[in-house]
Design a protein around this nucleic acid. Structure first.
Lengths: 197, 197
DNA sequence: ATTCTCAGATGACTTTGTCACCTGAATGAG
DNA sequence: CTCATTCAGGTGACAAAGTCATCTGAGAAT
């Protein structure tokens, strides 16, 4: 026996999963409310019982992805078995992995959120949390006094590297370098800079 | 008296300008073929005489923007009055300026091009040219032997900084740092690194 | 037991991309 | 100069998709 709220929660979950699945497999163009509904086992109008509009649904998907990322980074940060350098590497890898495995979702995560204010706020909240976790990890490597300067640089740069790769602008043919090499170089440079002055 | 080809070329030009204008002022959602046609002084079906589909039109807009960027960077690179450091600064500024003044266009430029193969090819071509100019400028600063390593890093990083700023993920409130500071730090680091090791 | 609430279904409207077809003017052959 | 041709552009039509008004039936509250 399923209570009404349980059923509603399950549908909401199914809608989010359906939207994320369609986004992954077919890109933004494949995410239609009709397809989302069908995949979630409901009809085209049902999503409006859970989200004010399509944008809000997409933004909720982005918020969940950012939350998952924040969780991952938090877990890495809290793992006492890892060295600060390893934490940094794993944290950055987590970000790049999203870009590689779910390029459309990655784009959604870093696009200005749209939809109703509540959804937008949730996405920003999740993004801020993810960023906060990254800041903590970077701080463990370069020291608190350098965090303000280097953490944002590291994050934006790795995002740029990932974004360019995701969009096919990092073809190995022409650049003769991989995303990993770029990140390694960057981290080494920042590490050295923070150490020496 | 306007020959037929002149008229057609003018319409094509008007369509591209209209699409770019709508993109700038209203975002991707405002770019409908009907609106583009109206703004260009033709009707909804006319664009199909010049572009196979909407994606190809957008890709052509992106290609032109990339070409303009390449021209700008080329001009900077060729200016004998500028020092290598100034060229680098101006080249990177040109990129960031596009992001700030035309955020939607900027996104379009760095998104995987869609549409018919010819349009896609043109966009890639323009992108490659812009990249080549940047490579040249960076090479003038860090030396040819370091270009392969640092030019892509610089470009992807500055793109990431710009993209994050454009999408509102660089709020000064939380990061306590500006895009300019990030770029300055990055350039200084790379410069130092290339000089010493 | 009755009424209420709300998730979900359905029909309808609007916008938009796209295509088939039509039209008139510039062009090129004779 | 005349006429057939080519092609940019207009028009009608259709399907897909977002959105809303309305309806319905099953759980929840009284």
């Amino acid at each position: 026996m399923v209570s009404r709220v349980e059923s509603a929660a399950a549908t909401r979950r199914a809608l989010l999963d359906a939207a994320a699945g369609l986004l992954d497999s077919g890109g933004p163009g494949a995410v239609t409310l009709r397809a989302v509904g069908a995949r979630a086992g409901v009809t085209r109008g049902a999503p409006y019982r859970h989200f004010p509009d399509k944008d809000s649904l997409l933004t909720a998907v982005a918020a969940e992805a950012l939350d998952r990322l924040a969780d991952q980074v938090q877990a890495v940060r809290a793992d006492p078995r890892l060295s600060p350098a390893d934490k940094l590497h794993m944290g950055l890898s987590a970000l790049m992995t999203v870009g590689r495995r779910q390029p459309h979702l990655y784009r959604l995560m870093f696009t200005h959120p749209a939809g109703d204010p509540a959804a937008i706020h949730a996405a920003k909240q999740a993004g801020d949390r993810a960023m906060g976790e990254f800041l903590g990890i970077v701080g463990g490597v370069v020291g608190a006094e350098h965090t303000r300067r280097f953490a944002p640089l590291l994050l934006t740069s790795v995002h740029g590297i990932t974004d360019m790769e995701v969009n096919g602008h990092l073809s190995a043919d022409k650049w003769h370098i991989t995303a990993e090499e770029l990140v390694t170089t960057l981290v080494a440079m920042i590490d050295r800079q923070a150490r020496s002055g």
